[in-house]
């Protein structure tokens, strides 16, 4: 049917269909009502870096050894590390201060690429707004440290790969240690079995 004004009627039908349809077909409404409904982030999405710890205690399980490679590589220089020292003043493989200024960080992930200890990884937390312009945007160690389980939950593939590698390394180390121990034992046994060379015998 094509008569003058039929285009308007067709248009009205389209809007009416959308209007009524939005009440009955839930998948028409693509809006995520944010505070109640959270988006399912893709695995590779990233916001800012965080530090991983193993086990229960963040301080004890910290993977970071304060090698400062990330600090040196960071293009906008948003990472600040001070190495910890023991009572005698000897350096310990652990950061005393580890700060990331996320108002400076550009989420380039270079720190993640260079970290030899799989210690720094990208977070997915995006609710980082604050009323304070500077202070709350500098994340210190207590805010940066998050458990390996959390890492598993946000980047499962990456985390599984890392954990498998750690497991393999641990097994290899164990095997090496076992072999070493066995060799040492063998050596000791041989040593014990062999009669001691006495000066008299050779004489």
């Amino acid at each position: 049917m094509n008569f003058p004004g039929s285009g308007i009627i067709k248009g009205l039908a389209v809007t009416a269909r959308n209007f009524a349809g939005s009440y009955f077909e839930k998948d028409r409404l693509t809006t995520e009502q944010y505070p109640e409904e959270r988006p399912k982030l893709p695995e590779n999405s990233r916001s800012f870096p965080f530090l991983i710890y193993d086990g229960e205690d963040p301080e004890a399980g910290m993977r970071c050894v304060s090698c400062k490679i990330c600090e040196k590589e960071c293009p906008p220089q948003c990472i600040y590390i001070i190495q910890d020292r023991d009572a005698a003043g000897k350096a310990i493989k652990r950061p005393k201060i580890f700060d990331i200024d996320i108002s400076v960080c550009m989420s380039c992930q270079i720190c993640v690429e260079v970290c030899p200890f799989e210690s720094i990884r990208m977070d997915q937390d995006y609710e980082l707004s604050s009323f304070d312009r500077f202070g709350s945007l500098i994340l210190d160690k207590s805010k940066l440290l998050k458990s390996n389980a959390y890492y598993q939950s946000i980047h499962p593939t990456e985390a599984a790969e890392t954990d498998a590698r750690f497991e393999a390394d641990r097994k290899k180390k164990e095997a090496a240690a076992a072999a070493k121990a066995a060799a040492a034992e063998k050596a000791a046994a041989e040593k014990a079995a062999k009669p001691p060379i006495t000066p008299e015998a050779g004489a």
Binding site: N18, F19, S22, Y23, R28, L29, T31
Partner: peptide, 13 residues
């Protein structure tokens, strides 16, 4: 709200 529904949105809620 009606305009929003015609555009498959929720509108002010």
């Amino acid at each position: 709200k009606i305009l929003a529904r015609a555009q498959n949105r929720y509108g002010p809620n």
